[in-house]
Structure formats: structure tokens, C-alpha cells
Design a protein around this nucleic acid. Structure first.
Length: 855
RNA sequence: GCGGGCGUGAUGGAAUGGUAGACAUAUCGGACUUAAAAUCCGUGGGCCGUCAGGCCGUGUGGGUUCGAGUCCCACCGCCCGCACCA
């Protein structure tokens, strides 16, 4: 008798699928299409158990849809540009391209043994000139349609290395290599006009029915539509060409609580003052210290500088307010200037207290204790929908909500000629310029005579030069004269290429469209895109909830405008699923200095819930941490496949934990999974050899369970409840093993079990299918259908609650009338005892669910 | 700091507002075996009880409801994102 041996069985079936071309995506009119896509990986070097989980989920869907008669597109590629390749080149020489392509080869070799049903013929990497050349073509089309432009924006500047730093390269406000304090510096950069689509991107969220609500909420908050008042404070004394400060506020109702005006250090007035006043320049330099992230700016100490300028309050020309330059005001949002109302904004209150500015409450709660900020309380910031008592209303009732007051304030201000109501969005334009080598070159040329000139499409791709070095900081393209110097595409005179490359988010914003025609001579092939788009199911990490998904939604719109996608693809992802991470315990000891030392799971032995190193030292176990190389709590899928096989890895990452939540990888769990699969194999082998007769009752009972299992597993897969589906498969395996049914019924049940398992453990399923004489490949066999008649039984068991606590249960006919159920329930011993001869206060019967007797 | 999410036995987790702990893992007990492994059967939230059964129990504290793990409010802890990590 053969035993379960994944090492021979898995390559055998993979070869069979390859030979049959089972997973090649083919376009045909006779079948509906289904496009399932997992977010493609960055080629870091090795695949990670988290990748296994992500791609297994996609594969379950792909295989399930194939069995349901769809033409399935399930492709794979690599998000291959980015900083790690340059870092590797800096650290150990070599070229980013070599490092990247070697990593891709390694990862493909690691992924193939997992038996994913992928169409590998469509694979590409975003660093392939064929791909990024088409991306450059897209850029030129966007440029022509006015979807790209140039403007100044701030970057992290390392004043020692004289280079731009990514946010992750700024650690505690200092450059990661130089250790120098980082400054925010302005640079001219390319931008996509995503903010022109703010309203549309926000409104369209409502139509994304199969997206998680949390993702839609995060995007809505990120886009951030706000209604407010834009108006100007007149300067008491005009200065250097400025006579007013334009501000935007979402709280015009608190105008009478204004105590100062704040402007960004990058505001035109601040810059004007900076140029002529060393003290202002000194402060602005201080205010520009630190990284560019909103987090860094929000957490930094709030600093202000009194410019000495004064503005008049729009309602009262005698009321003068000071103008401060403040480090927490962003030039990118609104007008780069605000008015501070300390009583109703904690940040403004902190600022006012620091600089001894007045605090004026304009409203208080309707009732309850309240310490006003004037008396040392916190800023009072209730939800705008809450009704409050106004101490300083100017166009509405004493009792009103913030919402009412804001609208009334805007109307009042407009009638007085003080500004106008406007709708603004928090979403900023997308800066795509990167001062780096390993990215898609921006295909424009800077000509002294013609200005910025797009490269001609026939000259695409503008390929990255190979002969570059990374021994000095900065962008090697900048110091590569033969690549940089090029004739102007328009006038032919000597000119210079743009040396900035594109943000890697650009690469990942349209790869899903490229998969529909990966080798087309244009960015997409409209016939292919029209057939395969949209992505029916997109799967990836929640960390991409905002940026990647928002940028992709923008690109789909922009590509549609340029004729590269059909109209229906304006929202490219019909359904989205965000999966959790795979975590693992960290094993940690400490060195003489008390610093932590980490150990790989393979280096420790677990005894009685404790971890020991080979030399007997006990290691501390830190449970369930996100896998990271530096903490050494990583599990290499290659080891798992070698020890247990791909099916074990696939089954384990899907079982136990719900897909949207994190899953803890444990060696014991993997071993137990392997034992279970061996058991299924053994049961199948026994059934294949058996010729026993069974009782009709046992046959019937087994088939009923089988249909229930078909129903539950199908539902589980459809609703991403893979863990629940697997629990049902365990339960059915137990039933099948214990069943006294005859061999014919058992063979039928076993074949169905193999089919139901095939999306998760495809190799074992094929083996069993073949063993029991199934026709063709189980991968192509039509998905089993549950027989509705087999799902219902004649009676149901209802729990009886007395005062909400379960006390008894009754069995009644499935279609029993409510009155009949009440009668049976009232006759129940426990109920009779509880009532003690009296009448129930209330009797609740939920048909088919529960009975609750209130006494 | 701001936005979003999560929290259930020893462990991973199940549960359209309706029997909390399905299914699995660890543990313990038993069968088989000269023995071990493998396999099979059982046990498997806490406390009390000989049994029948009872009381408590879903991060903490309140609330809504006939009924709350699920809905609402506050708090605690952890995770994700914050526009140049991918």
C-alpha cells in the first residue's frame, strides 16, 4: 500500500498541469472570465511564508473559479524597482539589475513547488524595459492630457551627504548614514493631478460594494472633503507687496474666538520676510528641521515666531491679531495659513499657552461640568453634530450644532463680503519624481531653448544605462554625461535628459492592466483589456489600503482618458480582500551587555512550552510578532516544503485563522496538518481497495453529510471563510472515517472530498481523484453542487431559554407553527418548574432558532 | 499627534443580535505493541457537586435589549497607515 509521499506526488501533478496547460489564461466567447490577482511581490530575495498565504488564497479562488467553468486569469509578476536594490549595490557592489533579476529567479524557483495555478507565460518585472517603456508612453500620454505637471515640493535633505532621503532613511530626524539633522528643502518635481479627481475618487467609493468598509472609510478620510470658509485677514501695515493673509478654515463659526494667525515657513510672506530679516531666516531654518512626514511634523514641538505683523479681524477693524510663523502649518494644505482658535483646538491651545496668546471660548456644553480652556481646561472639541450653547454666536441661535453654526457663519460672511464658502480636499497631488537610479526614467528632455520637451515615443524606452557606480551618495544618472546629454527631440540642439526617475508606486498602479496583454506594443491591448478587466478579486495586505489602491484608482481613470482602458475599468478592482500577516514567536537571549540576541526557530528546541538553545540556555519567548529578518523569527517556506510538502504549507496557512487576521506559524501546527493529510490519503487508499456493502441508513447519512459539506465549503470559499471551510473538511473527514456506509457511497464521498479539498491541497486531491478513477484532472472537474433536498431534515432542535439563560431544549417539526412551538415549550419540564404554576411574562419564539421564556 | 482596525479556554480560533468555545493544537488517560513510533478511542474554560445539576465566564467599566462575543459610550493594550519602504 502506498503511503502519502508529497515529494514524489507533488512534482508529478505539477508536471501534469503544465502539460495540459491547465492554468493558461485563454480568451473565449463560450465562457465567462474571472480575473483574480494577488498584490505582486517585491523581489527581496526569498519568498516568505506571508507570500505563501497570500498566493494560496488567490489560488484557492482561481482553482475554484476554474472548476466552476470560468476562463481564469491568475498572473504573477514582480514589483522590481526600488531602493533595496541600490542599497545592495552600495553595500556589496554589483548592479541593482543583477541583484534584482537573481532574486526574481530565486523566488520563482521557490514559488513553483507550491503548485500555484498561475499563468507563468504572462510574468514580467516592472524593471523590464518592455514594461517601463510602456509606462513612459503612459507618462507622455498623461502629459499631453494635462494630467502631469511640475511644481515645487519639499523633500528630506541630508546636508552632509547632499542628497534627498526617503522617509524611512530619516531616523529621529537624522540621516541614516550621515547622522546629520535632516532639513526640509524645496525641489522642482513632477506631479500627477490626482487631486483634480478628489471628489470623483471619494464619491465612487460608494459603488465599491465588495470592498471592505474599513478600506473605503480610510480612503474617504484620506481624501478628506471639507466644507469651510476662505477669506483674507487684512494686514494692518502692508509688507513687501503683501497686504493680506488668505486663510482657509473649517470652523468659521469660531471666528470670534480667533487669537492669532499662523503661516507656514514656506508661505510667500514668510519667505519674503526670511529674505530680509536674519531673525526670521534663523527661525525658518529651525522650523524646517526634521523630516517631511505628517507624523514627524505633528509630533514635533510646536514652535512659533512672532513676525511683528498684525492683521485686522474681519468683523472688527479695531481688533488686531498677531501673525506667527509656525512649524506645524503645511504649505501644501489649504492656503498655508490658518487662524488659531485656542479654545476649540488643542494644538492651537498648546500654542497659545506657550506664547501667552488670548483664549476665548465661543461655545460650551449644554449641560454638565465644564472647565473652560480659559480656566485651565482642555480645548473643547465636541463632534460637529452635537448641540452646544453658544456664548459668541453671530448668525445663529444660542443653542445649535456645530454643523448649523458653520453653514450659518459661511452664509453670514458671504453676505458681509468676508470670503466665500469653499469645498476643499485633504488629498494632495502625487509627487512622482525620485532622485534615484533604480526606477523608471521620466521620458523628458530639458532644452535651453524649448524648455521641457517630451521624448518621442519611437525613442522609448528611455533605458537606464548599465555603467553606473554607487560608491558615492546621490543619483548616478546625474553624473552620467553620455546618458544625460542628448539632443533636444524638438530642435535637435544639445540638451539634458531628466535624471529623476518615477516613484515605484507608478509601477504598481497599472500592472494589473498590463497582465491582460503583457507583451503588447502599446501599454494595453484594448481587446484583451475589454475581455479580462476588471480584476474580479484583488487580494493584498491592509498596509496598501490607502496609497497603492488610491493611486491605482487614479491611474485607471487617467488611462481611460487616454484610451488605454475601457470605460468600465474606471474602478479597476471589483472586489478587494485584505489578508492578515503570518506571525511567529521570537526567541531571544541577551549578551553580556544586556543587548537582545535573536535566534532562528531552527536553532531552538521547545520543551514544556519553554525554548532552549543547543547548549541548554533557555531563551525568552516573545509571542506572535510580525516576521522580520532582524528578529530572526522567519519561517522559510522552502524548509516547510522539503519537510512536509506544499499541500501541508498551503493547508496550514489557510486553516485556524480567518484570512483577514494574522496567523501564527507554529511547527507543531505544520506537523499536525501533515498528519491530517496523510490520514486523508490513507482513508482514500482504504476506500479504493474496499468492496464492502453498507446499510441504506448509513449510506443516506453519509450522503447527507456530504451535501451539507459541499454547501458549507462552497459558501466558505465564496465568502473568504477558508478557515471555516477547512473546519468543515476536517469534520467531514471524521464522519467519513467513522461511517458504516458501503464502498460505493464512500467512494462517492471521498471523490467529493478530494474535489472540495482541491483548491487548498491540489496535489493530494489529484492523487486521490486518480486513485478513485476520476475522469481527467480534478482541477478541471466541475465543482460539485449541493442537493438542496439533502440539506434539510424533518425536525429541528430549539434551545429553550428562561430569562435569557439556556435551560433546556425541544425537538419540533421543521415547519411547526409558532403556536405549536409555544405549546411544546410551555410543556417542557424546565419551563413548568420555572413558572411554578404561573403565567410567563413574555414568550419569544424565533422560528427555527430559539425560544425565550420570561418569568 | 491624526485616521483605521483588532482583543473569546493552556493555544489558533467558531458563533445572520438567539445553545459561547464548532474545528484544530497542546495536555492527560486508555487500546494496539516485547518496546517505541505510527494509528485508533476518550479527556479537553474556571469553580462547586457523588450524580442530577448549579454558579461564573468573550480586554476593563457602563448602557440598549426578552436576549450582547456581536450594537452604543468611555477606558486599557496591540496592529496598520500618515503621502520618498514596498
Amino acid at each position: 500500500m502506498s503511503r502519502y509521499d508529497p515529494a514524489t506526488l507533488e512534482p508529478k501533478w505539477q508536471a501534469a498541469w503544465d502539460e495540459a496547460g491547465t492554468f493558461l489564461a485563454t480568451r473565449s466567447a463560450d465562457k465567462p472570465k474571472y480575473y483574480v490577482l494577488e498584490m505582486f511581490p517585491y523581489p527581496s530575495g526569498r519568498i516568505h511564508i506571508g507570500h505563501v498565504r497570500n498566493y494560496t488564497m488567490g489560488d484557492v479562488i482561481a482553482r475554484y473559479k476554474l472548476a466552476n467553468g470560468f476562463n481564469v486569469l491568475h498572473p504573477m509578476g514582480f514589483d522590481a524597482f526600488g531602493m533595496p536594490a541600490e542599497n545592495a549595490a552600495m553595500a556589496s557592489g554589483g548592479h541593482p539589475a543583477d541583484w534584482t533579476y537573481q532574486n526574481i529567479d530565486t523566488m520563482v524557483a521557490q514559488m513553483k513547488p507550491l503548485g500555484f495555478g498561475l499563468d507563468w507565460t504572462r510574468m514580467f518585472a516592472t524593471c523590464d524595459p518592455e514594461y517601463y517603456g510602456q509606462q513612459q508612453a503612459l507618462f507622455l500620454d498623461f502629459l499631453e492630457k494635462g494630467l502631469v505637471y511640475r511644481k515645487n515640493a519639499v523633500v528630506n535633505w541630508d546636508p552632509v551627504d547632499m542628497t534627498v532621503l526617503a522617509n524611512e532613511q530619516v531616523i529621529d530626524g537624522k540621516g541614516w548614514r550621515s547622522g546629520a539633522e535632516v532639513e526640509r528643502r524645496e525641489l522642482t518635481q513632477w506631479f500627477f493631478r490626482i487631486s483634480d479627481f478628489s471628489g470623483e475618487l471619494l464619491d465612487a467609493l460608494d459603488r465599491l460594494d465588495d470592498w471592505p468598509a474599513k478600506v473605503k472609510l480610510m480612503q474617504a478620510n484620506w481624501i478628506g472633503r471639507s466644507r469651510g470658509l476662505q477669506f483674507a485677514f487684512g494686514l494692518v501695515e502692508p509688507t513687501r507687496g503683501h497686504d493680506r493673509v488668505e486663510v482657509y478654515t473649517t470652523r468659521p463659526d469660531t471666528l470670534l474666538g480667533a487669537s492669532f494667525v499662523g503661516i507656514s515657513p514656506d508661505h510667500p510672506i514668510a519667505k519674503e520676510l526670511e529674505a530680509h530679516d536674519p531673525k526670521v531666516a534663523e527661525f525658518c531654518a529651525l522650523a524646517r528641521k526634521g523630516g517631511t512626514t505628517e507624523e514627524a511634523i505633528e509630533k514635533a514641538e510646536k514652535l512659533g515666531f512672532d513676525t511683528g505683523l498684525r492683521v485686522r479681524h474681519p468683523f472688527d477693524t479695531a481688533w488686531e491679531l498677531p501673525v506667527y510663523i509656525a512649524n506645524f502649518i503645511l504649505m501644501d494644505y489649504g492656503t498655508g495659513a490658518i487662524f488659531g482658535c485656542p479654545a476649540h483646538d488643542q494644538r492651537d491651545l498648546d500654542f497659545a499657552r506657550k506664547y501667552h496668546l488670548p483664549v476665548i471660548s465661543t461655545f460650551v456644553p449644554l449641560r454638565g461640568e465644564h472647565v473652560t480652556p480659559e480656566d485651565g481646561g482642555a480645548a473643547y472639541v465636541p463632534p460637529k453634530s452635537e448641540t452646544v450653547r453658544w456664548t459668541l454666536p453671530f448668525a445663529w441661535d444660542e443653542e445649535a450644532t456645530g454643523e448649523t453654526a458653520i453653514e450659518a457663519a459661511i452664509a453670514f460672511c458671504e453676505s458681509k463680503g468676508v470670503g466665500h464658502g469653499v469645498t476643499k480636499f485633504r488629498l494632495r497631488d502625487w509627487g512622482l519624481s525620485r532622485q534615484r537610479y533604480w526606477g523608471c526614467p521620466i521620458p523628458v528632455v530639458h532644452c535651453a531653448d524649448c524648455g521641457v520637451v517630451p521624448e518621442k515615443k519611437e525613442n522609448l524606452p528611455v533605458e537606464l544605462p548599465k555603467d553606473v557606480g554607487f560608491d558615492v551618495p546621490g543619483n548616478p544618472l546625474d553624473r552620467h554625461p553620455t546618458w544625460r546629454d542628448t539632443p533636444c527631440p524638438r530642435c535637435g540642439k544639445p540638451a539634458k535628459r531628466e535624471t529623476d526617475t518615477m516613484d515605484t508606486f507608478v509601477d504598481s498602479s497599472w500592472y494589473f492592466a498590463r497582465f491582460t496583454a503583457p507583451h503588447a506594443a502599446t501599454p494595453t491591448d484594448m481587446a484583451e483589456a475589454a475581455y479580462w478587466m476588471n480584476v474580479d478579486q484583488y487580494i493584498g495586505g491592509i498596509e496598501h489600503a490607502i496609497l497603492h489602491l488610491l493611486y491605482s484608482r487614479f491611474f485607471a481613470r487617467a488611462m481611460q482618458i487616454c484610451g488605454h482602458l475601457p470605460e468600465k475599468s474606471i474602478e479597476p478592482f471589483d472586489a478587494l480582500f485584505t489578508q492578515g500577516m503570518v506571525t511567529h514567536a521570537i526567541y531571544q537571549t541577551r549578551d553580556e551587555a544586556g543587548r537582545p540576541v535573536y535566534h532562528f526557530p531552527e536553532e531552538v528546541e521547545l520543551r514544556d512550552g519553554k525554548a532552549f538553545l543547543k547548549d541548554g540556555t533557555e531563551a525568552e519567548i516573545i509571542p506572535s510578532a510580525k516576521m522580520s529578518k532582524s528578529k530572526k523569527n522567519v519561517v522559510d517556506p522552502v524548509n516547510i516544503i522539503e519537510t512536509y510538502g506544499a499541500d501541508t504549507a498551503r493547508w496550514f496557512v489557510l486553516s485556524d485563522s480567518p484570512p483577514e487576521r494574522d496567523v501564527e506559524w507554529t511547527a507543531a501546527g505544520a506537523e499536525a496538518t501533515n498528519k491530517h493529510l496523510a490520514r486523508v490519503h490513507r482513508i482514500a487508499t482504504d476506500i479504493a481497495a474496499s468492496t464492502e456493502e453498507g446499510s441504506p441508513e448509513a449510506d443516506e447519512a453519509l450522503l447527507r453529510e456530504m451535501h451539507k459539506t459541499i454547501f458549507d465549503v462552497t459558501n466558505g470559499i465564496e465568502s473568504f471563510g477558508f478557515n471555516a471551510a477547512i473546519a468543515k473538511l476536517y469534520a467531514f473527514t471524521n464522519t467519513l472515517q467513522k461511517s458504516q456506509a458501503g464502498s460505493a457511497a464512500k467512494r462517492s464521498a471521498m471523490k467529493t472530498l478530494a474535489q472540495l479539498m482541491s483548491p487548498m491541497t491540489p496535489h493530494l486531491a489529484e492523487e486521490i481523484w486518480a486513485m478513485l478513477g476520476g475522469a481527467g484532472l480534478v482541477a478541471n472537474a466541475p465543482w460539485p453542487k449541493a442537493d438542496e433536498a439533502m440539506l434539510v431534515s424533518d425536525t429541528v432542535t430549539l434551545p429553550i431559554q428562561i430569562n435569557g439563560k439556556r435551560r433546556s431544549e425541544i425537538t419540533v417539526p421543521r415547519d411547526a407553527a409558532k403556536e405549536e412551538v409555544e405549546k411544546i415549550a410551555l410543556a417542557d419540564d424546565a419551563v413548568v418548574k420555572a413558572l411554578a404554576g404561573g403565567q410567563p411574562k413574555k414568550l419569544i419564539v424565533v422560528p427555527g432558532r430559539i425560544v425565550n421564556v420570561v418569568v
